[in-house]
Amino acid sequence: MIELLPLLLQGTWITIKVTLLGSLVAIACALLAALGRISPIAPLRWLAIVYIEVFRGSSLLVQLFWLYFVLPMPPFNIQLSAFAVAVIGLGLNIGAYGAEVLRGAIRAVPRGQAEACHALNLSPMTRFGRIILPQALLAAIPPGTNLLIELLKNTSLVSLITLSDLAFRARQLNQATLMTLEIFGLALLIYFVLAQLINLGMRLLERRLARGRMRGGLS
């Protein structure tokens, strides 16, 4: 069983890299699209809506195929490595869901906060970056954790665009050794541990953002 580990861990490392970088792309996309979605400038709003609906409304696998197989063809002629496609594809896809989560969280910040900013003459940038966003992020953490775990699990699709991730290595080893129970048991465990790490990280972030808040305590 020990002989299984090196290959599985190689696959795990790919899965971790795709998840981490994909998460960064997803968070950036979510933030930009949420901002676009609530922007007073109509073309920005439309752009954000098109992005969100296209990436939410179609299959992730087909999106990955598009980026990997269709973009290199004319008229696009954009050739990306499988790894880049995995990171960008997963990031764009989960980012579209994240944008709606973040938009809801921004909306949920009480209106009085924006009014206080206005009365204090804070610039729109300061208002958003220093007052509204930190409060919205706190509210977005539970659904955001769901999305990042979803992103982790969706990385198993990248083997279909030739990346040797954890799921791919598990299938490969199974064919070679037929130690089916051990291999898929280990793969399951590794995904579970990774998901728990995401959970832990998000909890730490939540604690940081919630400093000073006493939910249900004194008010």
Binding site: P110, G112, Q113, E115, A119, P134, Q135, R211, G212
Partner: peptide, 15 residues
């Protein structure tokens, strides 16, 4: 002009 609101509207994440 400065204003004080009925619901305080302090920034909850700041000291």
């Amino acid at each position: 002009v400065g204003m004080v609101f009925q619901s305080f509207n302090l920034f909850p994440h700041m000291t």
